[in-house]
Nucleic acid binder design. Sequence first.
DNA 1: GGCAATCAGGACCTTATTTGTCCTATTAAC
DNA 2: GTTAATAGGACAAATAAGGTCCTGATTGCC
Lengths: 145, 145
Amino acid sequence: MLKLSRLTDYAVAALVRLSAAEGVETSPGIAAAIGIPEPTVAKVLKILAGQGLVLSTRGARGGYRLSRPLSSITVAEIIVAIDGPIALTSCVEGSGGVCESLLRCPVAGRWDPVNTAIRSALQNISLSDMAHAALPRGLRMSEVA
Amino acid sequence: MLKLSRLTDYAVAALVRLSAAEGVETSPGIAAAIGIPEPTVAKVLKILAGQGLVLSTRGARGGYRLSRPLSSITVAEIIVAIDGPIALTSCVEGSGGVCESLLRCPVAGRWDPVNTAIRSALQNISLSDMAHAALPRGLRMSEVA
DNA sequence: GGCAATCAGGACCTTATTTGTCCTATTAAC
DNA sequence: GTTAATAGGACAAATAAGGTCCTGATTGCC
């Protein structure tokens, strides 16, 4: 169905929430604010922290805060952080495993333009675009619908 | 991992193959040509026929053929045919079921720009672009990488 | 008219992925 | 030292995808 994981959705919600909080907020606090179970939110934040999208402070009075403004975080970054590299087909995963029908496959390697087009589209949408429900820079609704 | 289903991959391979065959080809014939098990290829072809992307002829000497040239079939069409509508999050599926955290969700409905950007990107790549490993019309590699 | 080839449609089982939860260790404030 | 908080990983359950097979309908050929 070409959809992204639910965790990515949670990540966006958490980041937007963090931006609104303007400071350090704890995992349970964020969970309550966006209405998602705490353990799950904690998991997402840990991943985001590992990728450097949020900064964490441990210990009492600790919590998470954004490492940069929403406007400089792209949707592509979040997807990569949570779901891994954006590669629509296994052919381009570069994971060493070669598709067994490669020799006969008439489209071997041909998904690359599709992958790059998707990446490009996602890199041009920042989280602040989403927070404001606006269109990405340079695009008009007529070009996109 | 934001990937599309393997069946979509098979569909592309089958359609490109059908284009090369230039005429009617049977399901087993296509399966042999692209190196994918026959039952699975048959399943894909049935879906494609149902969506009008290929025309089928029943009975002896029957088979499948393209309904239009490759250049007028977009990647988006294939994905929609196999995987259903392109909607990255369940929020926008429009399936009547309302997300239970909708009221608190700070990004409710905000994925729309992302979805439209993805659709736009996929609609600008035709199967003939893939068959030739070329870039979609109007785009240069520098704009996409 | 009968036989063989071929698509149509759906049921079904198996496997892989994703979710969500929990447990233990570590860190820092008071 | 106690409490509040993150770090990291292990794990079971739920969901989705993939693949196979069976039965029925249609058409060409002998």
